[in-house]
Every structure is written in structure tokens, then in C-alpha cells.
Amino acid sequence: MNGFWLVVGRDLALARRQGGESGLALLFFVLGTVLFPLGIGPETQMLARAGAGLLWIMALLAVLLSLERLFQTDFEDGSLDLLIMAPLAASLTVLAKCLAHWLATGLPMVVTAPLLAIMLAMDPAGLGALTLAMLLATPTLSLIGAIGAALTVGARRGGVLLTLLVLPLYIPVLIFGAGAVEASVAGPGAKGHFMILGALLLMAATLAPPAAAAALRHALE
């Protein structure tokens, strides 16, 4: 398990020292969200209605933006070979990289989301649900995205391809994430949505690392 935390620490240190890389995703999330009231008009009623969906779509796109670098930089400088050959199982290495990716990009977004939601005039009843749903779902986004990132390592036009592969798999997260906010604002409560988001997270945490590890091994053959 020591190796696991070493990989997490290494990726976090890289994210911190390279500066910007992961902060860029957060900036994209904030700036993109701010564009919507300017584009569709500042009427609070419409913003309150559309806010949750907008935030979720922006979160999806922001994570997507940061995924391309998840394995590509390590692939280019050769350290990916060493990481996969290391005694730590490849799927655990992937899991560690996902955890670091989530800590560097997902978690800041979870913290920022309620702030943006207030700017979008969201009903205060939905703020807690939004934060909890994002907390449950953003790790899923990193994990599913890792499969796409591993598959497109070394591909031509990897970024565009990554979008095509990963966005369809993100759709359940979007549906239940936005649905959770909707349900808690409208009244019936979002317990079911949280449970499904939790189930998605568990499924992604068990299935995505082996799939991504297999894809990486084939990429390095």
C-alpha cells in the first residue's frame, strides 16, 4: 500500500509544481458557468431553473479537459513504463492516479460549485444536495475518464477522441446528479439519486481501474 500513496503524492506534487494544469480546469469550470447568465440573460427565475444542469455540464466538460494529461505526459517522458512495471498492481496505480486527479481537479470544483450555484440564484434547498451529489459523482468522473484517457494514450487527435469516448459514459452521472438537485428543490428528497450516484461510484471504482490498466498495458506493448 506504500506504493499507492507514493503515486498519489507524486501526482499531487506534479500538479502543484506544474502550476495551473489542474487550476486551469477549475478556472474553465468557473468561467464557463459565468458565461451562461451573460448568454441566456440574467432573469433569476430562468437561471434558478437551469442552474443545476448548467453546473453539471460544466463540471463534466472541465473534468474532460483535464483528463487528456492524466496519462499522456507520463507516456511521453517514459515514466508510465516504470509505473506499470513497478511492483504495485497496475490497476492500483491507476486508482492512485485517479485519486490524485480527483483531489487536484474534482475536489476544488465540489467546493466552488455551491458558490456558483448561489450566483445562479439556485434555491438554497438545493445547495446541500448539489454539494453532496458532486462529492459522490466527481470521483466517478475521474475514474470513468481514466478508461478513456488510457485508451487514447498515443492516439492521433487524442483530445477529440477522448470526448467522443467518455461523454456517452458520463450521461448517467449527469442525469442523476442534476436530478438530485431537482428532486431536493421540488420536495420529494434526493435519497434515491444519492444512492444511485453512490452505486455508480462503487461500480466505477471496481471496474474502471482494471479496464484502464489493461488499456495502458496494451498501449505500452
Binding site: 478508461i147 485508451l151 487527435r157 477522441l161 456517452p168 489493461a214 506493448e221
Partner: peptide
């Protein structure tokens, strides 16, 4: 998914590499 699978086949110069990546995507 079908479209992504086909795009993945065309994204690599090496057909074996493309086949492996596409196969993993098909299973996912």
C-alpha cells in the same frame, strides 16, 4: 458507443494497438 469504437480504430497507425484499444472500449 459504436461511433466511438469506429473512431478509436482509426486513431492509431498501428492496427494491433488500435484493435486492443477498441476491444477494451467494446467491453466497457
Amino acid at each position: 458507443l459504436y461511433v466511438g469504437y469506429l473512431a478509436l480504430w482509426n486513431a492509431f497507425d498501428d492496427p494491433t494497438r488500435a484493435a486492443r484499444a477498441a476491444a477494451v472500449l467494446a467491453l466497457v
